[in-house]
Each structure stands twice: as structure tokens, then as C-alpha cells.
Design a protein around this nucleic acid. Structure first.
Length: 464
DNA sequence: GTTAGGG
DNA sequence: CCCTAAC
């Protein structure tokens, strides 16, 4: 990705932040992502865990995080080096976005040093007492990095000051120094040690690997590998469907996050966001139990059931989903049942008895035992019979004998269909739609109206 | 709710 | 066989 693209993306995110806050947006993403998960994994407690490209997500198929993951695209060494060039506020906000900058500044002193740390982070060359690598990993793994970077170019200073007023460790019991520590340039080893001891907290917040232990780090290859993955089609659909619904409930998160940017609060918020998703997901799963596919179909699936079927079928993987989709498509005519000769005879008889168009009557009186034949089916079959008979009539003279042998339909049946076709022409074949108006009061109207204006159907039952 | 018409 | 518009 080139620079322009990158900047464009950053600016987009900035707008989002101004409107609703990127925190909000991220949480939305979390929940949306959670919807896509067939099962929540224990080791991903929240958004950041999902974002952690180092974490092996297995079947979770992090492709679906592409929207978020795309933001990572530029968190590479080059961009990090570019960060160093930004004014001091850059790096501050860079970390303050995580409620974390104070810690860094305590340890590292000045911004440029942080920059250098970042610069070296991927190579793990900084091996001080501070377990910076894990922290930097967290930073690198966060999608907020590019956001902060972009914003720093414009209004970072103001925001940075705001952030500074809130200590990152205000609520951290092991860090009593709190806000003031930010200005304490001189470091002491004990602080570093504390930080090291509390690293799991930092890691938990930033990456949310609950108990990942010495997590894999410094794997730019893995990072890049993920970047090239495209969002799955399912993700796109789900994303577009659920986007509007999810946004409202999480409004106001930004306020909390910005004003109480302590680690605990951040963690709390994120866990809260996470907790919300499983319930929503379970509701989806519950609905799936009623999928029509799993039901014994004694009739045809209704229309609404089909819509259900297509839209709400969360599957673990894209492959499974596609396969299911394919099979569903193939099952479109699953209920098809071939018409037998007795059925055809019965249909012809019914038509001669009740007339063309009285499909429900025919169904009711002659096909009441065969539940799989709907009035629509009767009509369709009749339509096909007419077509077949007319086709056969055209070629009958030439190859009558052969036809009799080849045709699945006996000639007498065909003949009868043709007779009926003459008497009860299929609507629309002869006469216009308007002629069907008199269908209801046919017997009465037939007497009074001129014959030409009537549909032939109105003379049904004449030839019983 | 039923039917015609198109897919 | 399915879907939809028209009735």
C-alpha cells in the first residue's frame, strides 16, 4: 500500500473517531466479529485478542477481521520510523490511546526514545529490564496505531494534553505514583521491575491473550501473511447486515474511555463488550435449530422459511458455508416428484370434470390423497401436458408410430389432452387476460354475453 | 386465498 | 418446482 492510500484510510478513521469515537467503532467491530464466530475461544477475551495477529486464531478465520486488520497494514518498520519524526506529542498519543503512554514515558523518558524503541521493536533489540517487547507487541498489534499516527499530524497536541491529565495507572494498585509519575523523568529500577511484573496486565489489555505465556513476537512474516487475506463473503454480508443494528447500543463508550483511561477501565469496557456478544450469538444459534432443512418436510417449505434458511445460517468456516449454500441451491427441486401416468390421467379427468383453472377444486376432489401435489403443481403439469401434446401433434403425422413407442405419455392420454386443450384452452393461449373477468359468474354471464367475449373456460363441464 | 405467468 | 404479481 502506498502512502496516499494509507493516509486516506487514516483520515477515514479519524472521521469516525470524531463522530462516535474509534473506541466505539472498535467495539462494534468486536461484536460483529463475534457474531461470525461459531464458538468463542477462551483465549481471546476481547477485541484486542482478536486483533492480535500473532495469536493463532485457527478456525476462527481472522479473515473476517480484515476490516480491522487492514489498519495494520502500515504498521511496519518504515512507518514506525516515520513516527519518530513526528513531534513529541505523536508518540505520546500514540501510546496514550491505549491508556498506556504514561508507563512508557516513565520508563523511557522522552518521546524520541520511545520512537527508537519502536524502531527496534520488531527485532527485539531492546533488552532492558523493562519488558518492552511485549508492550510494543501490543502496540504493534493494535489497530489504533495508524489512527493515532494520522491524527498526530493535525490535532495531536491538544488531545495529548488531555490525555496526560489522566494517568494511565490511576487505578493500578501496584503503581501508586499515578499521574505525577508522568513528569518524573528519572527512572528507578523498581519502577521498571513493577512494570515488568505487571506486564501481563499490559499484555492483557493490549493484546488480550489471557494466558498466552511468552507469546510469539517479532514475526513480521506472520503479520504480513495475514494482511493479504481478503474478507470472506460471509463477513461482508454479515458486516453490512449487522452494522446498523450494532452501533446504537454502544454509544457513549468513548466518553468513558477517554475520561477514565485507566487500564482497568479499559479492560472492563472491553470485557463488557465481549460479554455482550455471546448472548447475541446464542440467539442466532437458537434460531438455527429451526432451520427448515432439518425439518421433515411433508409439504413444501414456505417462503419465509426459505429466507430464514439462506440468511441465518452461521457456519464455522467459509467452506462449510459455501458447501451448504451449494447444496441448498441444489435442493431447490428436492421435493420434485415425477408425475405418474395415473396421476396424469387423474389430472386430465379432473380438468374435464371441473375445467381448466379450477386447480384447487381438482386438487381437493381428485388429489386430496396426494399431499405433494398442490394446485399450482396441477396447473404446471397441465401446462406441460399442453406443451407436450402440441409438440407431439405437430410431428405426429410424420413419426406417429415411433412417437408412440418413445413417448412416455400414451397416445390416448395425449389425445385426450388435445381434446381438452381444444375445449379448455389454457388461459392466455387464446383470448386475452381480460376475457377471464367473467370467471366467477360464468354460467350466468355465458347466457347473456356474446360467446366471443367469453373465455372458453367458462363453458367447462359442458362435456362431462 | 387462488391463479397466471415467468424463471 | 419456485416465485411473484394480479385478482
Amino acid at each position: 500500500m502506498d502512502r496516499e492510500e494509507y493516509l486516506g484510510k487514516c483520515s477515514n478513521m479519524k472521521c469516525q473517531r470524531v463522530d462516535e469515537s474509534y473506541v466505539h467503532a472498535l467495539q462494534d467491530e468486536v461484536m460483529e466479529v463475534e457474531h461470525l464466530l461459531a464458538e468463542p475461544r477462551n483465549d481471546h477475551a476481547s477485541l484486542d485478542g482478536s486483533l492480535d495477529s500473532h495469536t493463532t486464531l485457527n478456525g476462527k478465520d481472522d479473515l473476517e477481521l480484515e476490516a480491522l486488520d487492514g489498519l495494520l497494514d502500515d504498521v511496519e518498520i518504515n512507518d514506525l520510523e516515520g513516527t519518530v519524526g513526528f513531534p513529541g506529542g505523536t508518540c505520546e498519543e500514540y501510546f496514550l490511546d491505549f491508556g498506556f503512554a504514561d508507563k512508557f514515558e516513565e520508563v523511557l523518558g522522552s518521546g524520541p526514545f520511545v520512537g527508537s524503541l519502536l524502531q527496534n521493536s520488531s527485532s527485539e533489540s531492546h533488552s532492558s529490564g523493562l519488558s518492552g517487547s511485549s508492550i510494543v507487541d501490543g502496540v504493534l498489534e493494535s489497530t489504533e496505531v495508524p489512527i493515532a499516527q494520522s491524527e498526530c499530524k493535525n490535532d495531536s497536541l491538544d488531545e495529548t494534553i488531555t490525555y496526560e491529565s489522566h494517568g494511565a495507572f490511576r487505578n493500578n494498585p501496584s503503581q501508586p505514583s499515578k499521574v505525577n509519575c508522568r513528569y518524573n523523568i528519572s527512572l528507578d529500577i523498581q519502577h521498571l521491575q513493577d512494570l515488568d511484573n505487571n506486564r501481563h496486565l499490559a499484555g492483557g489489555i493490549l493484546t488480550c491473550k489471557k494466558e498466552k505465556g511468552p507469546v510469539e513476537k517479532g514475526q513480521p512474516a506472520a503479520l504480513r501473511e495475514k494482511r493479504f487475506r481478503k474478507p470472506t463473503q460471509r463477513y461482508i454480508e454479515e458486516f453490512s447486515n449487522s452494522r446498523s443494528k450494532e452501533k446504537a447500543p454502544t454509544a457513549g463508550t468513548k466518553t468513558k474511555y477517554l475520561s477514565d483511561s485507566s487500564c482497568d477501565d479499559v479492560l472492563h469496557i472491553r470485557i463488557k463488550a465481549f460479554k455482550k456478544s455471546p448472548s447475541e450469538k446464542s440467539s442466532i444459534e437458537n434460531r438455527d435449530v429451526m432451520l427448515p432443512e432439518l425439518q421433515v418436510h411433508k409439504g413444501r417449505p414456505k417462503k419465509e422459511k426459505l429466507e430464514y434458511d439462506i440468511e441465518s445460517f452461521p457456519l464455522e468456516s467459509e467452506d462449510e458455508w459455501l458447501t451448504s449454500k451449494r447444496s441448498r441451491r441444489k435442493d431447490r427441486r428436492k421435493h420434485q416428484k415425477m408425475w405418474t401416468l395415473p396421476e396424469v390421467l387423474k389430472l386430465v379427468e379432473g380438468i374435464s370434470e371441473y375445467g381448466v383453472g379450477r386447480w384447487t377444486d381438482i386438487k381437493r376432489f381428485l388429489f386430496s390423497s396426494t399431499s405433494y401435489r398442490t394446485p399450482i403443481d396441477l396447473r404446471d403439469k397441465w401446462r406441460n401436458l399442453l406443451r407436450a401434446s402440441s409438440a407431439q401433434k405437430s410431428t405426429r403425422e410424420a413419426e406417429q408410430n415411433d412417437e408412440l413407442a418413445l413417448r412416455p405419455l400414451p397416445f390416448n392420454v395425449v389425445h385426450r389432452v388435445q381434446e381438452l386443450a381444444k375445449i379448455h384452452p389454457y388461459p392466455r393461449e387464446r383470448g386475452s387476460k381480460k376475457l377471464r373477468v367473467s370467471q366467477a359468474g360464468s354460467s350466468v354471464i355465458a347466457k347473456d354475453s356474446p360467446p366471443l367475449s367469453l373465455s372458453k373456460r367458462n363453458v367447462r363441464r359442458k362435456f362431462t
